[in-house]
Computed example of a mutant assay.
Amino acid sequence: MERWDFDGWARSYDEDVEREDWIHKDYWKVLKLVAERARGLVVDIGCGTGNVLRFLDPEKYIGVEPSVGMREKFRVKHGFEPLDGHFLRIPLTDESVDTVITTHAFHHVPDGEKTDAIKEMLRVLKPGGKILIADVMFESGEEKRRISAEDGLKEEIEDEYFATLEHLREICGKLGLRYRFGRVNRYVWIAEIELLTPDRKG
Rank of each mutant, 00 (worst) to 15 (best):
R123V: 05
T93L: 14
R180V: 11
K154G: 01
K154P: 00
H107A: 01
E160Q: 13
K77D: 01
E20S: 06
G8S: 12
T115V: 13
H104T: 12
G173D: 10
T197C: 07
R54Y: 02
F138E: 00
L88E: 10
W22I: 01
K144P: 03
Y179H: 15
E59G: 13
Y187D: 04
I157L: 05
L175V: 07
T99Y: 01
L195W: 11
R123N: 04
T103K: 03
C172W: 07
G69Y: 05
T99L: 04
H108Q: 01
I118P: 04
L92P: 10
P66F: 03
G129I: 03
G173M: 02
R145S: 09
E95W: 07
L122E: 03
I23V: 13
F87H: 10
Y179D: 04
D94H: 14
G85Q: 12
E143R: 00
F80K: 10
K29N: 11
R183I: 09
G202C: 10
L41D: 05
E95L: 08
W28T: 01
T164W: 00
R146H: 02
V124C: 08
K130W: 05
Y13L: 00
G202K: 13
D21K: 12
P91D: 10
K126Q: 11
S12C: 09
H24N: 14
V184A: 08
R183D: 08
L175M: 09
E143L: 00
K29P: 00
Y161S: 10
M1V: 13
W9H: 13
R146W: 03
C47E: 03
E158W: 05
R123E: 07
R178E: 14
T197W: 15
A134I: 01
V30S: 12
D7F: 02
D116S: 15
E155K: 15
F80G: 09
G173H: 06
D57H: 04
V30T: 14
L165F: 01
D94A: 12
D7P: 11
A191L: 08
K154H: 02
K32P: 00
R89D: 14
G63T: 03
E156W: 06
T115A: 07
R19D: 09
G85W: 08
E160Y: 11
L125I: 05
R75I: 00
G141V: 02
W22E: 02
L177K: 12
H78E: 07
L177M: 09
R178H: 10
H78D: 04
D199N: 14
I190S: 06
K77H: 08
R39S: 15
G40L: 12
G48W: 00
T115Q: 11
E81V: 13
L153A: 01
R145T: 04
L33H: 08
S67A: 13
R37P: 00
P198K: 09
K29I: 07
F162Y: 13
F55C: 05
V97A: 06
A149L: 15
L177Q: 07
L195E: 15
C47I: 05
A35Q: 07
H104W: 15
S148Q: 09
S148T: 03
H104D: 14
G141E: 15
F55S: 03
P82T: 08
V64S: 06
I90K: 02
D116H: 09
R178D: 15
W28Y: 15
C172N: 11
A163C: 09
F162N: 02
K144A: 06
I193W: 12
F87T: 10
H167L: 15
K32H: 06
I133K: 08
D135K: 04
M137D: 02
Y13Q: 05
E156Q: 14
L53T: 08
T49H: 02
I157H: 04
